[in-house]
Amino acid sequence: MRSLDTTRILRRGGLALALAGALAASPAVAQGQAAGGAPAAFTTADLARLCGPAADNANAMALRPACFAALVTIGQTHSLYTTGPRAQRPIFCLPDPTPALDRVAADFVSWAAANQQHSGARAAEGVLRFAAATYPCPAAPAARRR
Rank of each mutant, 00 (worst) to 15 (best):
A132G: 12
L47E: 00
D46S: 06
P65R: 06
A70F: 05
L71D: 08
Q117I: 12
M1I: 10
A139H: 04
V127C: 08
N115M: 09
M1P: 11
P85E: 15
D107G: 07
R144H: 02
Q117T: 14
A121S: 15
R49A: 10
A69W: 06
A48W: 01
G37M: 05
S119G: 10
A41T: 10
Y135R: 11
V104F: 07
Q31P: 00
R145D: 05
L94K: 02
A40R: 15
P27A: 00
T44E: 00
C51W: 00
L71P: 02
P136I: 12
L23S: 06
V104G: 04
A18W: 01
V109K: 04
V127Q: 06
P85S: 15
A100M: 11
Q116I: 03
I91Q: 13
T43K: 05
Q116P: 02
E125R: 11
G75W: 06
F130M: 09
L63W: 03
A124C: 07
A20H: 09
S79A: 14
D5H: 12
L47K: 00
R8W: 11
D96Y: 09
D107N: 13
Q33V: 10
A30Y: 04
P97W: 08
A124F: 03
L47M: 06
A66P: 00
D96V: 13
A114Q: 15
T82K: 09
R64A: 04
I91S: 09
L19D: 06
L101I: 06
R11H: 12
A48F: 00
D46G: 02
I74R: 00
H118L: 14
P65T: 02
S110V: 04
E125K: 09
A113E: 10
T77F: 01
L71C: 07
F130S: 07
L15D: 07
M61E: 11
G32K: 15
A60P: 02
T73P: 02
A66M: 03
A55D: 11
A60R: 15
G13I: 05
G14Y: 09
R103E: 14
V104Q: 12
Y135D: 12
P95G: 11
D96M: 09
A48S: 07
F42C: 04
I9C: 02
G14S: 11
Q117R: 15
A48T: 01
T44I: 01
S3Y: 08
C67H: 03
P138M: 07
A25V: 01
T83K: 13
A40H: 09
T82G: 10
G21E: 13
